[in-house]
Design a binder for these strands. Structure first.
Lengths: 349, 349
DNA sequence: ATTAGCACTCTATCCCTGCGAGTGCCAAAA
DNA sequence: TTTTGGCACTCGCAGGGATAGAGTGCTAAT
């Protein structure tokens, strides 16, 4: 994108104005609000060219211009001046992230709520991707006839468990042996390298009847697989209904509807997360308007950052809002929450 | 409320018509859609009286009538003919409640989703009130230095756990002793009879240094208390945005905003649940419009039923929608889901 | 390259009107 | 006493100008 200095200034001014007023901006009001050394006629020419380049567009003939997705993209990539948060704003965010919680999940939920409150947008977080973390402990506790609890302690400092069914006739000693064998063999293995066969092979080290072995192995395996399933935490859904951008109802419904499908959301976030890793970008992902391939979010923007629980275990936290959002500030807020989250997570490792 | 036969018929017809058309109903259209043996003028007189009694009201002078909260109440109490679900509808609901889940929580979530789908309204469930269930097991597992997992098996077939902090210097043997002592003493005790003192007293049976005892007791206690905290599961928030009743945006925002405060919702549900118990009603609670004392839900209706995990452990499941809802059908749906839930829960006890 | 000026376009708003649905009431009928 | 037909009245809503206002593109002059 080749933009001369003045075009850059004009585009920047248009985005800034439109974001703050939610009105298409015309050449005259541009002159009024900014110190351009040229006349409105000159700006009109510039604007015509910007439109020709696809950076801005007209809702209708006699209205001002609004930025296009491409325009926002240009703005975000090279025009925007990222706004630092004031100490007060920082404090406000930190206050809401109660650091006295005992579980990572709660910490993440708090951070998500805090982010939504600060930005006034819908916020979301994806739980840590535990595929790369490895098992430190695996215990199977007999609970009552037919029921056991598989408890897994992972290297990332996370504890996961799952209630599973077991045959009635199994006894404590047998269970101890199987559970011990599985633990011994799987300890240190990353979750994504554990397959049903791995577990079964591990269990075979014990002298326990075959069918019993198979069943327990399967249940242990399913518990392990469940442990690395991703969760999506949403917050502040109601806030988007405050925004004038969503007064059309249909849009709001689509957004909330789509977001409530956490599987799809997690999948999408993973997708752009791996794109980020390949591009070796900094820790940000910004998707604007049509760049988002999730149905119903085509006129939203998505800003998300990657937090790290350990070097190899990460998740995402970010916001979704209308394309017309205060990028310069929201980015700082997301970044700040991410950093705070990273800091607090040290305690859990 | 003294209503002669004809007034009842008129009110019933008005509610039915208004619910299905979402238009104020006038005397003439009432004649057209129903087989009244009288003229529209007579109905006008009846309607004037019904309005005088506060059962129906006019949005403005020259519009038809719509039922008031009081009118809906009368309808629900004595006019409505509860609509049975067709086998097909029953099947559809059952299909969505996947009965192969291993945990009660998942069962409840599924039921909630199914209910929302069936009714097209927002559904919600409150997790079982475990206060009255008693401890069957309590184990404290050492996880890593400074961290332990408290695992509790409750009489209602529910397993709860919590990660807690413990002093670094405690050793396995000490922990075994404390944990054993606590379990021995608390087994069989309903959760709501367990206090911090109870736990401490139990722990004192062991010969472990006092400060250690105190701290572990406190952590165990906090885990127990956390186990009987109530959770609220919501589903189908986006569906209310489909309803013409919520086209005003503000109402939708208030509703979603209020519902997202799960503490308030749980409190309110508990409140009306205990009212139900006192009145020794059947298993239904219906709150219409102004009867709801939750801010932001003043023009909604709330239909909820009580499910039972055991005799003494119950929770609630129900829906929230506009006062203009198909009471006769929604009630059947809620009831059916509740029964299905009760049936499936047998497996967990 | 910039600018002033101008004709043109399009929307949003206001006001007016007429239509339709519905009401309340009265006097006559049952 | 209840019911009914009839009628005047009310009010919201949709449609139809008319107007104002904001903005554009183009042209000719600087």
């Amino acid at each position: 994108m080749q933009l001369d200095m003045r075009k850059k200034e004009v585009l920047q001014a248009i985005v800034d104005d439109y974001v703050s007023t939610n009105e298409p901006v015309g050449s005259k009001s541009l002159i009024e609000r900014h110190n351009f050394a040229v006349s409105s006629a000159t700006l009109r020419n510039e604007m015509a060219e910007l439109e020709h380049m696809g950076l801005i567009e007209k809702p209708h003939t006699s209205a001002g211009r609004i930025p296009s997705d491409k325009g926002y993209r240009e703005y975000v990539n090279s025009l925007m001046i990222v706004e630092e948060l004031s100490p007060k704003e920082q404090l406000e965010i930190e206050r809401r992230i109660d650091s006295s919680v005992d579980e990572v999940t709660d910490l993440i939920k708090n951070a998500t709520a805090s982010l939504s409150e600060a930005t006034g947008l819908v916020s979301l977080a994806v739980s840590p991707r535990l595929k790369k973390s490895y098992l430190k402990q695996l215990k199977i506790l007999m609970i009552e006839p037919g029921k056991a609890l598989v408890v897994m302690v992972l290297s990332a400092g996370v504890v996961k468990d799952k209630v599973v069914r077991i045959p009635n006739y199994i006894n404590d000693a047998q269970m101890m042996r199987i559970s011990g064998a599985i633990e011994k063999c799987l300890t240190g293995k990353p979750l994504d390298e554990i397959t049903l066969v791995t577990v079964e092979t591990a269990a075979k080290a014990t002298e326990v009847p075959e069918p019993l072995l198979k069943q327990i192995s399967y249940e242990a395996y399913s518990a392990i697989k469940q442990a690395d399933e991703l969760n999506v935490y949403l917050d502040g859904e109601h806030r988007i209904l405050e925004l004038p951008d969503f007064n059309s109802l249909g849009r709001a419904r689509d957004l909330i509807g789509t977001l409530s499908n956490s599987g799809m959301v997690a999948g999408y976030v993973n997708e752009i997360e791996s794109a980020r890793e390949e591009e070796n970008n900094d820790s940000f992902m910004i998707r604007i308007g049509q760049e988002i391939t999730l149905e119903g979010l085509e006129d939203c923007s998505f800003i998300t950052a990657t937090y790290n629980l350990t070097d190899s275990v990460s998740g995402n936290i970010g916001v979704i809002g209308p394309t017309r959002m205060l990028y310069s500030k929201v980015i700082s807020q997301v970044d700040f929450v991410k950093k705070k989250l990273n800091k607090e997570m040290q305690r859990f490792i």
